[in-house]
Amino acid sequence: MSTPRDSVVRVGLLFPELLGTYGDGGNAVILVQRLRWRGLDAELVEIAAGTTVPETCDLYLLGGGEDAPQTEAARELGTDGPLHRAVARGAVVLAVCAGMQIVGRSFPGGSGRTETGLGLLDCVTVKTDEPRAVGELLVTPDAAFADLGRLTGFENHGGRTRLGPGARPLGRVVAGVGNGDGTEGVTTADEADGRVVGTYLHGPVLARNPALADALLAWVVGAPLDPLDDTDADALRAERFRAVEQGNLDGVAHRTWRDRLLRRN
């Protein structure tokens, strides 16, 4: 698998009108551009809600959304549909925020009801009495993802996510809330169970984390990718790391003192 594929890479943006509230479409733009800049053919496929989901994309994106649209998206994707068959075939999924919640086993819907998720990741999301997690989120990746470097982004979610034995987190929270237990993000424990990555780093997470974008693309292409000029992203990362270090955490002040003490211990 060391020769780059010569066919077009198809990036499927799922339900942008339901799951696109935080500039989530940016991730699709970023993936397509990073392929094109390397001379690889790429196509952005916008998949509207209410239409048949194509099974032929190489990579699928699910973004953030509110309770009602989130529940609708989960209902349309089902527990054994085209997306599941694509994942079984080896397609990659990046699921962000509400997107991550719905690809798990269950998540809280709008009226407090527990909704059934897609079951692509072994995790459940629950409602707690903790305040909404809003603010900068900084993550040190677990050893398996060390190549990604520190992950940086913004989070804005009410639910807390618990991982089952078939899942592992992306990393540990340095600043922010993440899954709510000191971990952040969810992926499959075994690649044989699918190449599905979930994260609370919401919206255009790949803008701040080009290494994560390239890790997803390397899965698709089947080979490591040539480096690109990421001067702008490096400057953005440095500036955001500095902001977190200086305690300029924006909404992270929403965390309770209990939260902070528990984390410190």
Binding site: Y22, G23, G25, G26, V29, G135, F154, H202, D250, G251
Partner: peptide
């Protein structure tokens, strides 16, 4: 800027 009056999260730049 991304102060409170601007919204602290500039994700909307991608829209």
């Amino acid at each position: 800027n991304a102060r409170i009056a601007d919204g602290r999260d500039p994700s909307w730049l991608w829209d």
